[in-house]
Write a protein that binds this DNA or RNA. Structure first.
Lengths: 342, 342
DNA sequence: CATCCTGTTGACAACGTTGTCCAGGGCCTA
DNA sequence: TAGGCCCTGGACAACGTTGTCAACAGGATG
């Protein structure tokens, strides 16, 4: 056995190629290609012979080679924060459905909220030459994407805006949603309202905080020290922040939770207390109806679908200026946000 | 402008190649390749020139071409039922983490519980020449995978066994878990216990039903007509089944829910009733602790991690006979399963 | 000064597919 | 029957990268 043969044996476990099929069927290489791609110009008889050879050898076209030749990978990349987060599951699924409808596969990765990892992932996807990219950014500077975008990789940012680079974006109305939620608490008689949110580095976190401040200002309420806590959504920290706000001589009577993870922890803390505490959370949660949690809901699936449709419109040739879509949120009253101050 | 040029312009939006970088830096093609891959044998001075050309042109290596040459794609495929399902999010994330540790990207797809779509997805991934495949099967005949496996695509089945093909599997102990859950209800005094599960086509569904029957038989209880319902997990159907079992002259006093979606609907139905009904569900659910739902928990992340580690061990050369791993489940008592019969 | 060695560099083929183009055979028409 | 056309099929180059190998320069050694 010579070296060449041994080498090829270790590749793809020795998969048959079109050349092998052609040899077995006694036809030319291109004829096999035609059969595999259902191109016209092949006699039924020849086609049958080729098909038999394909089945006998277990041939499957190598899309890597095809991609190289054709220049399109029929795949799109999705970089999000954490696939295990209940908000991103439906979003990802919606993107996948749209991709499937366009015959594309989905490659995804989680940045774990780490800007460096986000960049690493995005660039790996670009190296794979995905046709398009949907990014839920962790970082706030995306200039590293410039050469890629210039080179033609369609890109849509989701949930949070891109930094220093002009691309399509699909966002939820974080400011308006939070403002409405806090106003809802105020309307039910609360004046001492705490806000617990994600890290200030994250755009949605600061937008929601801005909504909180706007609602408070609208009602003529001065936000006191200690009513606002921004930081990681780690349960320990959120728990500490919530307990801090709910203790002391003048505790808050209501909490606004900046996202689903915060809400979950807040519910736990409140459940342990005797005195009832009102709560409105940003993002809906499974079973929130049973627990009677009032939320500001953003439709994750709609966000994903909208973003993916934008992306494919770009891939189909749309070349208008980058657009910014903002999706409305919905207040869903379920009880926890309608409790009066204790 | 001649035709060749126009053609190349539409590919990848005219990305620069190593050849372009080489021309600009005034070096040979292979030298660029060496720099890009940090191979030894390049003078610092040459390396600097090449690097400058790379930055100036915005070059990024085309991994499609690389893959074709090297024979490894450094990507693995994951086919599951529905990415939006809270059980699969963490599973998928765990697989991704392991893949990342091995420098591989994750391509995933949802079969939507449709065997045909599963096959279509799996074969598309094989055509991409993923190095390995993790499949949560929807169908029960996987002979279509034989040529692929023979050709060297490492494969691990998860959650449900493969049909007619000999591969590695990572399963949860559905039978044992269900048996334990039902026995738990019996230990708390129940004798009239209903079982609501997924479609009988699905292996875990029948295994759990088998566990139910085993527990009942162990306790000397005869299962009556109407206590068992298998079918889609569509909320409407589950609701109808649950209401049927809870009505009539001799209703069941406890329910065993075959999976997380069934549990959610069962909780809703039970919440609407006056008479308390005991409940144990298979699969843990977020916030189940707050709702006091007793569950049989299988650790989705552990399942995903185990499967991915198996896969990469195969990719690293392990060639023992296909193994079947069964992970234990845990009963978590939280109240709903400890209610006495009404 | 001839020789050898080492370290850097580039020419070339190959990976498996598809696009282009040409050859040959059969059929129709004049 | 010659000429033209259509239909089928195949040879060949190209996609962008990496592995192999040979060339070359410069220094050390005899």
């Amino acid at each position: 056995m010579d070296r060449t043969a041994r080498h090829s044996e270790t590749r793809y476990g020795n998969r048959p190629t079109m050349k092998d099929v052609a040899a077995r069927a006694g036809v030319g290489l291109k004829t096999v290609s035609r059969v595999v791609n259902s191109e016209p110009g092949v006699t039924p008889d020849t086609e049958r012979r080729v098909q038999e050879a394909i089945d006998a050898l277990g041939f499957r076209r190598n899309d890597s080679a095809r991609v190289l030749r054709k220049g399109r990978t029929a795949s799109i990349g999705l970089v999000l924060e954490d696939l295990a987060d209940p908000f991103y599951g439906p979003l990802s699924r919606a993107v996948e459905e749209v991709a499937r409808a366009h015959g594309a596969l989905l490659i995804n990765g989680s940045s774990a909220e780490d800007p460096e990892r986000e960049q690493e992932l995005v660039l790996a996807l670009c190296a794979r030459r995905v046709d398009g990219l949907i990014v839920i950014p962790a970082g706030d500077d995306h200039r590293y994407l410039e050469p890629e975008i210039k080179a033609g990789i369609a890109t849509v940012f989701v949930d949070r805006p891109a930094g220093h680079v002009d691309v399509d974006m699909v966002l939820s109305d974080s400011f308006g949603g939070a403002r409405e939620g806090v106003a809802h608490l105020i309307a039910h008689g609360h004046r001492r309202i705490g806000f617990i949110g994600d890290q200030p580095r994250i755009h949605t976190a600061t937008e929601r905080l801005r909504g909180y401040h706007a609602a408070m200002r609208d009602a003529g309420i001065t936000v006191e020290d200690g009513w606002v806590s921004l930081g990681s959504t780690d349960p320990e920290r959120v728990r500490a922040a919530a307990e801090e706000m709910l203790s002391g001589p003048e505790p808050v009577t209501a909490l606004f939770a900046g996202n689903n993870r915060v809400t979950v922890t807040a519910v736990r803390v409140i459940a342990e207390r005797e005195r009832p505490v009102a709560l409105v959370g940003f993002d809906d949660i499974e079973l929130a109806d049973l627990l009677g949690i009032t939320v500001i809901s953003q439709d994750a699936a709609a966000v994903g679908r909208t973003a993916a449709e934008h992306l494919f419109r770009r891939l189909d040739g749309a070349d208008h200026a980058p657009a910014r879509v903002e999706l409305a949120t919905t207040l869903i009253p379920r009880g926890s946000g309608e409790l009066p101050p204790a």
